[in-house]
Design a protein around this nucleic acid. Structure first.
Lengths: 146, 146
DNA sequence: TATTGTTATACTCTATAACTATA
DNA sequence: TATAGTTATAGAGTATAACAATA
């Protein structure tokens, strides 16, 4: 379902968000990476962390993260090593090659944003950011029927 | 992946759009309908049309629409009848029960929008709509490699 | 031969629970 | 007994191609 069925603001935001996400994912894949793998590199960029904390930060199930890290490690973009202090834990760290790939990804995302928001002035982009920040305060309430 | 990995505007729009979509889908399901079935009723509300045209309007594959219409028809919310002028065609029409269900759906979506955008003034909502309308002009270019 | 709707198939994504090794 | 990571399984969603009826 890709066509707007009404002129409601909620639909407009949802559909434009979807299109924007598609464009961003295309940019994330520029280095030959699966978009979610590129997202994982982004999360790892500030510093190493345990696999569990990484899953929490990304809000994905730990079991999903396993496949992502297997691929990143096979490509030499990230590495897992046992935490000597607690040998159950894996410390996940981005590699130099991973940082280089992330640099290319970041450039592609920047280019995508210039395309997406190039029609807006800097002031308008700031305005849009401010308005979006004030939308959707408690989204999860209706997912699980709280 | 539900957590923002950067403060980029593209990510913000994509993620807020995702959350908004989730809230809207919850509202669409209020009448016991699958969200995409409710969307289909919305498309049918203005008037009957052929199954092919309906698929085109919704931008879904005709084969996906089959299952949707089977369910809507089983629930008595829409009906298919052969086009006498071209017996290959099905004319799809919303029923009275379908229109009633759609009324409940519409009320729920309105309530969802009041929650989502209640923090914004009417003027701000209009502003947001205007800004969103000027984003993402040619989204498909990067999906299929044009 | 082309078109409309349908069916069948396969592939991705996601959610869940069971399993191991360590604590 | 609880926790970190892993594996296996099943479900939803989607994309594609083959098919029957009609033009």
């Amino acid at each position: 379902m890709a066509a707007l069925p009404s002129d409601r603001l909620g639909f407009l935001l949802s559909f434009r968000g979807e299109l924007t996400g598609a464009r961003i994912r295309a940019a994330l894949g520029v280095a030959g990476l699966h978009p979610r793998n590129a997202m994982t590199l982004m999360q790892l960029a500030p510093g190493a962390m345990s696999q569990r904390d990484l899953a929490a930060a990304m809000e994905v199930d730990p079991s999903q993260l396993v496949a992502i890290l297997n691929e990143l490690e096979a490509d030499g973009l990230a590495e897992r090593r046992r935490d000597p202090a607690d040998r159950r834990r894996h410390i996940v760290k981005i590699t130099e090659a991973g940082a280089a790939a992330l640099g290319r990804v970041d450039a592609a995302v920047g280019e995508a944003e210039r395309e997406l928001f190039g029609g807006l002035t800097e002031a308008e982009q700031t305005l849009l950011r401010g308005l979006l920040d004030r939308v959707v305060v408690n989204p999860a309430d209706h997912e699980c029927g709280e």
